[in-house]
């Protein structure tokens, strides 16, 4: 067990190093950092001095070491576009994205898991078939189209909800939240739905497939033959054995939420990290792109570690190996 965790930790460090190296290569090789930081009027001598100050003449490995070290200490450099410290830009934008993502994820799991269980247990009911067809359409409609449709319906036609921005926000220290005002919630509804719908359909379909697999297993048949009540059969035996794969799914969902938050934030002009990243790509703002990349990878690696630990909590085969 400890070996298992140690091995995963080691792999995570490897992944992080690799991503950091990609970010470093971006910074170092895509465009020339010096010409980005200086104007046309800077003399060649000044440019050379800046080059030396930045350590761009040092051996590559040493530069990478310094780059990683700076990342670890929270020194992320300066944006080419706004000339602000990247760290500060990210900190300002993070609350908006996290609030959006968490609400979307909660929607997708709260609806997706029960719907998946239902369609697995009653695969032939009319309602299940309808749900399945609906979710297939849900998987096929691009996120931005869902966003446009919601804007059109609730924003343009009915005029009930705002269609862009975060609405009223309150500051809790450094955290700017929209969860404490009615106006903020109103602004959050449409983007969170947009982001949540795709994840919801995915969750439902995957839970259904796993649950159907489990319900055909020998131990379920044996438990049925022992006359265990159907409720216990479905939840105590069926759903709990579905949990392991479902946790993997939830882990992957986080990745999906991050990716699609870029699209959602673009459609609703939601001032979060995704929008920042999109702007930085348009302007080839390498430092912001690099830091965003490292941040996302770190987030993903941490989620995966948590998922691995949860496996062990749920599955005794990973926890206790001793024979009796």
């Amino acid at each position: 067990m400890t070996y298992f965790i140690a091995k995963r930790l080691l792999q995570s460090v490897f992944v992080m190093l690799a991503v950091a190296f990609i970010a470093f290569s971006l910074f170092r090789f895509v465009g020339d950092p010096v010409s980005q930081m200086t104007g046309v009027e800077t003399s060649l001598a000044d440019q050379a001095r800046l080059r030396a100050e930045l350590g761009l003449d040092d051996p590559l490995l040493q530069q990478f070491y310094r780059f990683s070290n700076n990342l670890l200490q929270g020194e992320f450099g300066y944006s080419y576009r706004t000339r602000q410290p990247v760290g500060q830009m990210i900190v300002e934008r993070i609350p908006a994205t996290i609030e959006l993502g968490v609400v979307a994820l909660v929607i997708s799991l709260l609806v997706g898991i029960p719907a998946g269980v239902y369609t697995a247990l009653k695969p032939n009911s009319f309602f299940s078939q309808g749900l399945l067809l609906t979710t297939l359409v849900g998987v096929s409609v691009p996120t931005f189209v869902i966003g446009i449709m919601l804007i059109f319906l609730f924003g343009v036609q009915l005029g009930w909800l705002p269609t862009f921005g975060r609405g009223g926000t309150l500051n809790l220290g450094a955290w700017e939240t929209s969860l404490l005002t009615v106006d903020g919630w109103k602004s959050l509804v449409l983007p969170a739905l947009t982001l949540g719908v795709y994840q919801l359909t995915l969750t439902m379909r995957l839970v259904r497939a796993e649950m159907m697999e489990v319900m055909q297993s020998d131990y379920i048949r044996f438990a049925t033959a022992r006359g265990i009540s159907y409720r216990r059969l479905h939840y105590r035996h069926g759903l709990s054995n579905t949990l392991v794969p479902v946790i993997t799914i939830i882990g992957l969902q986080f990745g999906g939420v991050v990716a699609f938050s870029i699209v959602t934030e673009s459609v609703f002009q939601w001032p979060g990290l995704g929008l920042l990243f999109l702007e930085s790509i348009r302007f080839v703002d390498i430092p912001v792109m690099g830091v965003y990349l490292v941040l996302i990878a770190l987030f993903f690696v941490v989620i995966n570690l948590i998922v691995d630990l949860l496996y062990a909590v749920i599955d005794p085969r990973l926890r206790v190996q001793k024979a009796v």
Partner: peptide, 18 residues
């Protein structure tokens, strides 16, 4: 660890830079 949209955006970004 880098979702599809992110990878695609990134590659496009690199292409712009290079």
């Amino acid at each position: 660890a880098l979702p599809a949209i992110l990878t695609a955006l990134l590659i496009d970004g690199i292409a712009r830079g290079v």
